[in-house]
Design a protein around this nucleic acid. Structure first.
Lengths: 239, 239
DNA sequence: ACCTGAACACCGTTCAAGT
DNA sequence: ACCTGAACACCGTTCAAGT
C-alpha cells in the first residue's frame, strides 16, 4: 500500500543540498555532539556544518533550546534496551545498565546540555516505554509498585550520573592534566607535599595500587545497585 | 603572638570598597551561584556585582575557567562532614550523604559549571581529608581497601548525581512547565493521548499515586546504597 | 599597582531584503 | 517558501591609557 508520488510535495533538494527539516537539523546537532563537545555546538557552527547561514536554522527550530530539545528527543528514541528477563534479573539489570551507559557515551554532553538548558528528558514515547518496561521488571522481581518506580529512577540516575561524572572527564580529559593523573589517588600535585600525604593514610596506600579502570568502577556500582535492590526485594532471584 | 601592623602592607581598601583578592573574587562567584544559576554567572555580571569593571577581575584570575576553579576550591573547603562512626555505620553513612547533598544544594550549578569547564574537583586538601576519612570508614566497616575506595567514590557520585539530576530541576523548575508537572508520571502531555497510556501500564498506575517528594527518592537511594554496601561487606553492623 | 574605556572576536537572535 | 547579509545585544578577553 505504498502511495505513489503525490501531486505536490515539499521539494527535497535545494541548491544541491537536501532541504532541512526539524528532524534533520536535530539529527545533525546530535551527530555534532558525537564528534565535538557540547561547548562547540553553537547555532553558527552547526549552520556552517550544514552549509547554510545561521538564520536558516530558525526556520525549523525556535531557538537554541528548541534545537537541543529536538536532539534530545532523537537521542532518546535511538536506544532500544536489551531484554529484561526477571528470571535472571541480576544479569539482565547489569546488561541493561551497560547498554544504557554505552548509549550515553556515544553522545557526550547530551545530558549536560539538556540539564544546562533545563530540558525535561524522558518525554519521548520510546523512552517512556523503556521506563515502563523497567518498572515492570522490578515489579516482577518482587518490589511493590512504588519501590519499582523508585528503583527504576535510581537505576537510570546511577548510569547517567556515572557517565556525566566519571566517563566524560575520562573520555575527554582536560588539556592541562597529564594523561593518567586522573585516576591516580592521591592526586600527584598533592603528593609533592609530604605533610599532606601524612594526613591521608588511606589515599596514600591506594596510590600504591593499580588505579581502577572506569569499567571496574562501573561494575562495582552495579554490584552495589543489584545487591541493594535484592535486599529491598527480600529475595535473591535465580542467577 | 599576633604580629603588629607591618611596615608596609597591601592596601585593604580602594575607593571605599575592599580591594579584591583572588579569594574574594572566587568567594563572590560562589555566592553569586547561591543566588542565581550558572548561566547568569558571567565575568561581566560578577564585575557589576562587585562594582568594578570586567577588566579588574583579570588582575586576580586568569580567565573564567580559573575563576570557577577558585570558586570550586572554596566550595570544597567549605564543608565539614558529620562524624563517621563505624559502630553505627548505616546511620552515619546516611547522615554523611544528607549533609553532602545539602551542601551541594546551597550552591546550585557549581558541579555543572566545574564539569562544563573540565575542572577536576576533590583537589582541595580539606576535601581530600574528607575523602580519606570516608575510605577509612568503609575499611572499618569491613571492606577491603580497594573496595573501600570504590564505595567512597560511589557514595559521592550518588549524592552529587542526585543533586544534579534530581534536585536542580526541582529547585529551579523550567519556566515552561506547570509546577507539579515534574513529578507526575506519566507526564501529562502524554496522558492526553489515550493510546500511549495504554502502552504504559505501570506508569499509568503510578500516575494515580501520590508523587514522591525528592527527599523520599533520596532516602530510597540511600537504602539501596547502604544495603548494597552491607552485602559487599558481608556483615550488617550494629545499627 | 590597580583601575577604566574602547576594542576585538565570538555568540544567539532578528530585520529587511533577495530568489 | 526559504534563503542571505547586515545588524543588535550580549559574552570573554585584550590593549592602551589613566590615577
Amino acid at each position: 500500500m505504498s502511495s505513489p508520488t503525490p501531486a505536490r510535495r515539499r521539494p527535497t533538494h535545494r541548491k544541491g543540498r537536501a532541504t532541512l527539516t526539524r528532524e534533520s537539523v536535530g539529527r545533525a546537532a546530535l551527530e555534532f555532539l558525537g564528534r565535538s563537545g557540547p561547548a562547540e555546538l553553537t547555532m553558527r557552527s552547526l549552520a556552517a556544518d550544514l552549509g547554510v547561514s545561521p538564520r536558516a536554522l530558525y526556520n525549523y527550530v525556535e531557538d537554541r533550546r528548541d534545537l537541543i530539545t529536538v536532539a534530545a528527543e532523537i537521542f532518546e528514541s535511538g536506544w532500544r534496551p536489551p531484554e529484561l528477563d526477571p528470571a535472571r534479573w541480576r544479569d539482565a539489570l547489569r546488561a541493561f545498565c551497560r547498554d544504557l551507559r554505552a548509549h550515553h557515551r556515544r553522545h557526550p554532553g547530551m545530558t549536560a546540555l539538556a540539564l544546562s538548558e533545563n530540558i525535561t528528558m524522558a518525554r519521548h514515547p520510546v523512552m517512556l516505554r523503556n521506563v515502563d518496561a523497567l518498572i515492570g521488571f522490578f515489579a516482577a522481581v518482587g518490589l511493590p509498585l512504588q519501590d519499582a518506580y523508585r528503583a527504576c529512577m535510581e537505576t537510570i540516575r546511577l548510569v547517567v550520573g556515572f557517565v556525566e561524572l566519571q566517563d566524560t572527564v575520562h573520555d575527554r580529559p582536560p588539556a592541562h592534566l597529564n594523561p593518567g593523573d586522573l585516576e591516580r589517588m592521591p592526586p600527584p600535585w598533592l603528593s609533592a607535599d609530604a605533610d599532606a600525604d601524612a594526613d591521608l593514610p588511606y589515599l596514600s596506600r591506594i596510590g600504591e595500587l593499580e588505579p581502577d579502570a572506569p569499567d571496574t568502577l562501573f561494575e562495582f556500582s552495579l554490584d552495589v545497585l543489584v545487591e541493594g535492590i535484592a535486599a529491598r526485594a527480600g529475595r535473591d532471584g535465580s542467577s
